[in-house]
Design a protein around this nucleic acid. Structure first.
Lengths: 293, 293
DNA sequence: GTTCCGCATGAATCGATAG
DNA sequence: ACTATCGATTCATGCGGAA
């Protein structure tokens, strides 16, 4: 079923291999991709110095130089109407916020991207700790970049009901919660319309309140499922192509599959690739694999 | 009473005239101030193009150049252990977020400031709105700058009630639990639970959830009283000097007075100065006034 | 079946200690 | 002096077992 979308060829669009996890450096892997074949890029790149063991850790002073060749490929493979969402947060180094993220914003604009928006992901359950000179860091940036001023956006797909639910349940936008709410809304319409007459749906803001998923038995996703899910709903339709060039444990691909989008996940780490592929019922392939396009 | 603090001369500190509203451009007014006489600067500068009628509106492309001479004076009058909080948010211009704010961060660092932290002020009560390409902007930056790595900070003064789970757990901490913990402590095993006994407050994060005050129709920059209040409690003690060089309707000064700090407010707009002075029971003075120091 | 409680676990940061 | 490693600090969350 899911595979069948793989065979679809859109009008005026080259075929792109989808629903694949590819092991390799996205800088190299993406070179075999055709131009403008991706509708949405959602990713959380390796952070500075973190995960030194798995990714080698990028030094903050070299972060922009490391990133730009890769974002150059993102720019090429993204459709004109596509969107690039970059989840990132600068670290506090030596008592000061490092500037590599805002330098990256400037550099990406110079590369040709439009810096369209900056969403705030408010991490309700951030890492604890107390220091003499700062509090816990409870937010991350979700930077939105586009190639053109006109991009695809489906604002209605992320609307939330107004009223009591907005205060409590809908603050958490997790997949199960959302599904439950939607079913309740629909059944509510059927059974008791009067409760819903006059009740409106509201558009969200550019602040997202999501808790990190930390207690999971398996490997923790630094990135809650609801985060890519929200952007995928906002910026794509069914069967659109969603790329995560720094896939990690595979959260973006899982969200895309769940929402019946096509996914492409790339990661340098074989263990993560295989973990993600397993989650998705796919087989991870080598980055050296050449697509017949 | 409040005036009497005006006469206080701290050890090793020149006298600074306080509890005054001064009408003039802070670039000029501050030149008559001694070095290192201010403990905290909290301000929300004129935004780009907004408030064109009252402030003349600064063009985004010239914003950094306009700001730097003023921040140079801020740097001079601020004490070594003082803090500068800059509430600002870049506008979306021509479908894109303008970069003058992040350029300003880079420029301020070059000027000698440390970019210590970036707080997010989440404006939570506003009605959701929608544009074709974006949602309502529900957050602003509160950039923290310092002169030195060691600065005054009173974290206990802004603690918040703990999460529901822990609160209920602590409330139900029974006598046996308490006894067990105490015996553990005495025997030298286990953690020091006494830190948690009787504690119902937790340290906050760098995300501030404050509602905007919508009733303030006279001044377009609706800066809720709670915002300067929070930073004043966090970074100053009683009788410390709080400066707002772009005072607007006077919210920072009101917050400082309320918390028994000394205030200095500066604004170019005479109407705002008089409005603020009236609120504070003071008389606005001309910027040309020379302090006898 | 609910509700409640115990517990492990985080894309963290700083300061001290060691090489 | 400068870098690398380690321990201490801290709290929202979800899971699993208990009441």
């Amino acid at each position: 079923m899911q595979r069948s979308t793989n065979k679809r060829i859109m009008a005026g669009e080259m075929e792109v291999p989808t629903n694949k996890i590819i092991c390799g450096d996205c800088a190299a892997v993406l070179q075999s991709f055709p131009d403008e074949c991706v509708d949405l890029i959602v990713t959380s790149p390796p952070y500075v110095e973190c995960r030194k063991k798995t990714y080698g850790g990028i030094h903050p002073d070299h972060y922009v130089d490391w990133f730009l060749p890769r974002s150059q490929e993102f720019l090429r493979v993204l459709k004109r109407t596509g969107t690039f969402i970059l989840n990132i947060k600068e670290k506090a180094i030596n008592g000061e916020r490092h500037t590599y993220v805002i330098e990256l914003i400037m550099a990406l604009r110079k590369q040709g991207w439009l810096w369209t928006e900056e969403f705030v992901w408010h991490k309700k359950n951030c890492y604890p700790g107390k220091w003499p000179n700062r509090f816990r860091d409870a937010w991350e940036r979700c930077l939105q970049f586009n190639k053109a001023k006109k991009f695809k956006m489906f604002q209605e797909s992320v609307m939330v009901p107004m009223g009591e639910w907005r205060k409590s349940r809908l603050r958490k936008l997790s997949a199960t919660d959302r599904q439950r709410d939607e079913s309740r809304v629909r059944s509510g319409f059927g059974k008791n319309i009067s409760n819903w007459l006059g009740r409106e749906m509201a558009y969200p803001t550019n602040v997202l309140h999501l808790a990190t998923e930390c207690g999971n038995k398996n490997h923790s996703a630094a990135f809650p499922l609801a985060l890519p899910e929200w952007f995928i709903r906002l910026f794509t339709e069914k069967h659109d192509v969603v790329l995560d060039p720094f896939l990690g444990s595979g959260t973006t691909a899982v969200a895309a599959k769940h929402l019946e989008r096509r996914y492409i996940g790339i990661d340098t780490n074989r263990v993560y690739c295989e973990m993600a592929a397993k989650k998705l019922g796919e087989v991870a392939v080598q980055g050296s694999f050449k697509w017949s396009i």
